[in-house]
Amino acid sequence: MPYHGGPMTEAMYYVLLALIRPNHGYQLMQAITDVSKGRLQMGPGTLYGVLSRMQKDGLICLEDSDGRRKTYRITAEGEVALRMEYARLKSVIEDSEMLEEGDK
């Protein structure tokens, strides 16, 4: 069943963001930690569950496999979904600006 938009989990969002450059599992865990500035650290169980689901949804694909190491990359559909989620998150922040107004 393809992904049809709607809010993504934080894990999905960061996996897609980290897969702008193709990566394999261990590198991907490190890239997620780096891109989230250490805020999100994903373990192998969570990561491989998310990767499996996103592959079924057509958001990522297997680029290479040497039997032991699998390298994944974001698909065109995945990039569209990532950009849609980015726009949604920006709107959420913009809609919440009244919180900052109260601090002034």
Rank of each mutant, 00 (worst) to 15 (best):
Y86E: 15
K56A: 06
Q55M: 11
S65D: 10
L28I: 11
G67R: 01
H24E: 12
E85P: 02
G78V: 03
Q41E: 15
A11S: 14
M12K: 13
Y86L: 13
V15E: 03
M12A: 15
V80L: 08
M12I: 03
G38A: 08
M42D: 04
R68N: 10
K70N: 09
L59R: 06
L28F: 12
R21T: 13
Y72E: 01
G49S: 10
I74Q: 06
R88F: 03
V92I: 15
G45S: 15
G78Q: 06
M84I: 06
T46D: 12
Y3M: 05
G49M: 02
N23E: 15
H24N: 11
V92P: 01
E63T: 03
I93D: 05
L59C: 08
R21S: 10
M84A: 12
A18D: 10
L89T: 00
M84F: 06
G67H: 01
T33G: 10
G43L: 05
T75N: 02
G67I: 02
K90D: 13
E79C: 04
E100P: 00
A31E: 15
Y86C: 07
L19I: 09
P44T: 14
I32Q: 14
E85A: 00
G102N: 06
M1T: 00
V92Q: 11
V35H: 07
Y13W: 11
K70G: 02
E101R: 08
G43M: 06
P7F: 09
E85H: 01
L28H: 12
A76N: 04
E10Y: 04
E77H: 05
A87C: 03
R53H: 11
E79N: 10
S36F: 12
T71Y: 00
Y48P: 03
R39N: 14
C61F: 07
K37R: 14
H24C: 09
L51I: 02
G45F: 11
Y14T: 05
S36K: 13
R21K: 13
G67F: 00
G49C: 01
K56M: 02
E63V: 08
A18C: 07
H24A: 13
L51T: 01
A76C: 01
I32F: 13
A81F: 09
G102A: 05
V92H: 05
G45W: 10
G45E: 14
S52M: 09
G38I: 10
L62P: 00
